[in-house]
């Protein structure tokens, strides 16, 4: 059974937009990190995420079939067309919050890529295989930093706990399921996100416990990013910065 083209496109945008938007957020640290080594490491992470976005959005553009490129999708769509999860567009906050957001996303990606490498769609499986090595390193690194800062000084622990209180309500959205996910699951292209929660909770729970951080009890989850229903007020500002050059000088290349 051929999968619905629009649903496949939505699925690809959800992953590709998430890595793209997070990549931009992480790149905002370039030249501002607390130490040189972390600055380079974060820039590497941002570049890895850009590379992944290129692959996901490149395939998305192909599926869309309107002759567009990954660049067109990245730079010429407005906020309401983006399908990234809200977690990725949140402002960086301090270094600790940035790394905690990174870990919460990396953990999700590592679980997801583990399933996507067995996708019935060969292109999806290929991209996932390539991305999974980067993702495995990202999650190892961000987990280490979360443990280091969580179980660090009184000050770093306090900031990490505050960051967790702020970010946790954005975790639930990654496991939302709708008709797009149902269609992907049925076609064997991708797992139902809800089915990833157990593995995610085990991984995240283990690291946060080691970091001596307490997961907030509330079940409330912000949503609206991956469906495009409503992004936070932060995405528009991010896109203005990310897209302005291509908007001001259409078709500009160098």
């Amino acid at each position: 059974m051929a999968v619905d083209k629009d649903k496949l496109l939505q699925f690809l945008l959800r992953i590709g937009d998430s890595t793209l938007v997070l990549s931009h957020r992480v790149s905002e640290w370039c030249g501002h990190s607390p130490i040189l080594e972390e600055d380079i490491a974060l820039a590497n992470t941002a570049l890895d995420l850009i590379g992944q976005s290129q692959m996901w959005l490149g395939y998305a553009a192909e599926v869309q079939g309107e002759g567009k490129s990954a660049d067109d999708l990245a730079f010429l769509r407005d906020a309401w067309d983006f399908r990234n999860v809200l977690l990725t567009e949140l402002p960086n906050g301090d270094f600790g919050r940035t790394l905690l957001r990174q870990f919460l996303f990396d953990a999700f990606q590592s679980v997801l890529m583990g399933r996507l490498i067995k996708s019935s769609d060969e292109t999806v499986a290929g991209i996932a295989a390539k991305a999974s090595k980067e993702v495995a390193y990202h999650v190892e690194r961000s987990a280490d930093t979360v443990v280091g800062l969580g179980d660090g000084t009184e000050e770093s622990h306090k900031r990490m706990q505050q960051a967790l209180e702020y970010l946790w309500p954005y975790v639930g959205e990654m496991f939302e399921s709708d008709e797009v996910d149902a269609a992907m699951a049925e076609a064997g292209i991708a797992p139902d996100p809800a089915s990833l929660r157990e593995e995610y909770d085990a991984l995240v729970g283990r690291v946060l416990a080691e970091a001596t951080l307490t997961i907030p009890e509330g079940k409330f989850a912000h949503k609206g990013g991956r469906t495009g229903y409503m992004h936070t007020e932060h995405l528009g500002h991010l896109l203005a910065q990310m897209q302005w050059l291509q908007r001001a000088y259409p078709g500009c290349e160098w």
Binding site: E37, I40, A41
Partner: peptide, 12 residues
């Protein structure tokens, strides 16, 4: 972390 930093600084 020194190994991770070395990976990011010297083997990129």
């Amino acid at each position: 972390m020194a190994i991770k930093n070395a990976r990011d600084v010297y083997t990129r």
